[in-house]
Design a protein around this nucleic acid. Structure first.
Length: 431
RNA sequence: GGAGAAAUACCCAAGUGGUGAAGGGGCUCCCCUGCUAAGGGAGUAGGGCUCUAACGGGUCGCGAGGGUUCAAAUCCCUCUUUCUCCGCCA
C-alpha cells in the first residue's frame, strides 16, 4: 500500500512512477483523492455529533438527580443517534471503496529503474564462463530419466500435468540442495522457519498477491467446519511477510533475518514447449526463501546482502551466472526493486532465473501494519521488508545435471553437495 | 468433538450501566540521606482518524467485530486466543 500523504502531496509524481511500471493509475488516484476528501468532511462532522452525544450523556445523571424531566433530551438524543449511525454507514462505504483502490495500486519502483518491461532489464555483472561441452550433451529430462532420478510419468499419474516425482538419488539430490541452502543460511545467522503451507486470505493481502493476483494461487474448495478458507502458499514469502502482521517491533529487534523452506504451489505451470520441459515450471516446486525486516535506512544494505547470499549459493554450486537488474515493469507489483540471478540450462536458450531478490520497502508493511518504535523519537514507523529466493531448486537441478553431465550420461556431484550424499562424487546409472 | 473459565497498561489486578478505568509492583524523576538500601513525593495508556499556523482540542480505544441503551469494560450475539476437565487420535 502507498502512503496517502505522499499521494496527496504530489499525485502527478505517483502517476508518473506507476506509469513506469506500466500501470495507468490516473483514474484510481483521482478517485482516491476524491474519497479521501469526502471521508474527511464526514468524519469531522460525525465526530462533532459524537462529542455532543457524549457531553449530553454526562449531564443526564445530574438531571435525574435534580428530578428534571429527561424525556425531551432522550428524544433529541435518539435523533442524534440516528444521524450518527447513518454517517458511520456512509464512512464505512467510502472507506471500503478507498481501501479497495489503495490495495490495487502497485508499489512505486525505485527512481533509478528503467521504465518498461523485460526488454529494459540490465545485466549488472557476470560470474564465470558459460559451460562448454566437448561432446553432444543430453537434456535434463533424458539425463534424469536415464539415471532414474525423476519419474515424470508417474508424477503426471499422481498429480496430473505439471507434477513430477523425485525418487531415490533424485530425491536425495533435491534434499541435498535444500540442505546446502539451509545450512548456509543458518551459518549466516538467519532463523529457520517452517510455516504453514496453507494460509488465510489476509496473508495474500499483506504480501500483495490479493486481491489483484489471486488467480495464481490455489484456493482450497472446501472450507473447514468453521468456514475458514485456505490458500496453498505460492511462495514462503506469503507466510513470512505476515509473520509480524499487526505487531510493533523494537528498533533493536531489527533487522530480522529469517528463511523458510516450503514447497510452492502455483496454478500457472509451463506448457509442453521445449523451453519449459521437465521441471522448469510446475504446479509445485521446492524453494528456500530468505526474508528480512529492516529499518527504512537499513533496507538498501539488506538488499545487497540478500543478492550476495543468493549469488554465493549459485557460485558454490559452480555455476556461471549473471545478475540482472529488472526494469520497473518487470518487477512484481509489490516490489520497488528486484534483481534476478540467472543461470544457463544448456538445452534451453538464454538464461533462466534461479533467484529473485526484491525490496518491497514499506509496501508490505503498510498492508500488514508492521511497525517498529524508533528509539530516537519514540514514534512508530513502518518497517521495510525484503525477500529473495535462496534458492528454488526447480531450475537448479536441471542446470546441475546438464552442466555436470559426463559423456556416459552420469553426473558429477558438486563438492558442496557431496557430504549430503554420503560422499558420492558421481551419480551413475545403477546396475 | 463436548463442557466450563478467562482476556483491562510493561507485570499483577479492582471495576455488574452514569462525572476523569481503582490499587499494587516495576520503571523515570525529585526529596531525604556519607554511599546503598529503606522512607517520602511526583510522573507513568497507547494507537488510528480528525480539526488547528501552533498551543491544544475532538473522536475511537478494556482480546476482535456487531447489537441493546440517552449512556457499555460492565448487558446480549458472533468470532479469536489461552487455561481446566471429558472424549478421540498420530
Amino acid at each position: 500500500m502507498l502512503d496517502i500523504r505522499r499521494i496527496k502531496e504530489n499525485p502527478e509524481e505517483i502517476i508518473d512512477l506507476l506509469g513506469r511500471k506500466g500501470k495507468d493509475a490516473r483514474e484510481a488516484i483521482q478517485r482516491i483523492l476524491e474519497l479521501d476528501g469526502q471521508r474527511r468532511v464526514l468524519v469531522s462532522e460525525t465526530d462533532n455529533l459524537k462529542a455532543k452525544q457524549n457531553a449530553v450523556s454526562k449531564q443526564i445523571p445530574a438531571m435525574k438527580k435534580a428530578g428534571q424531566d429527561t424525556a425531551p433530551v432522550f428524544a433529541e438524543m435518539n435523533a442524534l443517534k440516528e444521524t450518527i449511525k447513518e454517517n458511520d454507514g456512509k464512512i464505512s462505504a467510502i472507506e471500503a471503496e478507498y481501501k479497495d483502490l489503495m490495495l490495487g495500486l502497485p508499489n512505486l519502483p525505485d527512481g533509478d529503474l528503467l521504465p518498461g518491461g523485460k526488454e529494459n532489464n540490465e545485466p549488472l555483472r557476470y560470474f564465470g564462463e558459460p559451460h562448454v561441452f566437448d561432446f553432444e550433451p543430453k537434456n535434463h529430462v533424458d539425463l534424469c530419466t536415464g539415471l532414474d532420478l525423476i519419474d515424470y510419468e508417474r508424477g503426471v499419474k499422481l498429480g496430473g500435468n505439471g507434477f513430477w516425482i523425485y525418487k531415490g538419488m533424485g530425491a536425495r539430490l533435491e534434499w541435498a540442495l535444500l540442505n546446502y541452502f539451509i545450512d548456509t543460511h543458518i551459518q549466516d545467522g538467519y532463523e529457520f522457519i517452517l510455516p504453514p503451507h496453507m494460509l488465510e486470505y489476509q496473508c495474500g493481502v499483506t504480501a500483495g498477491q490479493f486481491p489483484k493476483f489471486a488467480d495464481e494461487v490455489y484456493k482450497i474448495a472446501n472450507p473447514t467446519a468453521e468456514g475458514r478458507v485456505h490458500y496453498m502458499l505460492p511462495t514462503a514469502e506469503a507466510a513470512l511477510a505476515s509473520y509480524f502482521r499487526d505487531e510493533v517491533l523494537k528498533e533493536s529487534d531489527l533487522p530480522q533475518k529469517m528463511f523458510a523452506y516450503t514447497p510452492c504451489f502455483r496454478r500457472e505451470a509451463g506448457s509442453y514447449r521445449a523451453d519449459e520441459r521437465g521441471m522448469v515450471r510446475g504446479h509445485q516446486f521446492n524453494k528456500v526463501e530468505m526474508f528480512q525486516f529492516t529499518t527504512p535506512e537499513g533496507s538498501d544494505a539488506a538488499f545487497e546482502e540478500l543478492v550476495t547470499k543468493a549469488e554465493n549459493l549459485v557460485k558454490g554450486l559452480g555455476f556461471h551466472f549473471r545478475t540482472v537488474k529488472l526494469a520497473a515493469g518487470d518487477c512484481s507489483a509489490s516490489m520497488a526493486r528486484t534483481y534476478d540471478i540467472e543461470i544457463q540450462i544448456p538445452s534451453m536458450n538464454g538464461y533462466k532465473e534461479v533467484s529473485s531478490v526484491s525490496n518491497a520497502r514499506d509496501y508490505q508493511a503498510r498492508r500488514g501494519n508492521i511497525r517498529f518504535k524508533r528509539e530516537a523519537t519514540g514514534k512508530l514507523e513502518f518497517v521495510h521488508s525484503l525477500n529473495g529466493s535462496g534458492l528454488a531448486t526447480s531450475r537448479i537441478l536441471p542446470a546441475l545435471v546438464e552442466q555436470n553431465q559426463l559423456p556416459d550420461g552420469s553426473v558429477k556431484v558438486p563438492e558442496v553437495l557431496q557430504k549430503y550424499l554420503g560422499g558420492l562424487e558421481v551419480l551413475k546409472k545403477e546396475k
